[in-house]
């Protein structure tokens, strides 16, 4: 099952790779990734899947990263990320 997550990150070195790495290490496949640079932060849109692991637990694990400002799950999934690769704004 796919889960859409939207994270607001501090715009600091390593914050994106740290977040993506955690999701993969915790057993989630990265289905889609989109990065939007904002004035003082970065928005990271993720779609992840895992046959085994709880998205709620992943969310709590992401929240405790120092660079993560906030996390929202199950956001509007109608947005089409299918053409997106990792990209900066």
């Amino acid at each position: 099952m796919n889960h859409a997550i939207e994270l607001r990150l501090r715009a600091v070195e390593g914050s994106i790779i740290r977040t993506l790495g955690l999701a993969e290490r915790r057993g989630f496949k990265l289905e889609r990734v989109l990065v939007e640079q904002q004035a003082e932060s970065q928005l990271l849109h993720l779609v992840v899947s895992s046959p085994m692991r709880s998205i709620e637990v992943l969310t709590k694990q992401l929240e405790r990263l120092h660079d993560v400002i906030d996390v929202a799950i199950n956001i509007d999934q109608s947005q089409d990320y299918s053409a997106c690769a990792v990209s900066g704004g």
Binding site: E13, G14, I17, D67
Partner: peptide, 12 residues
């Protein structure tokens, strides 16, 4: 080392 230790630090 910043990248290598990322999975085993609280922060860096």
């Amino acid at each position: 080392i910043f990248g290598m230790t990322m999975p085993v630090v609280k922060h860096s």
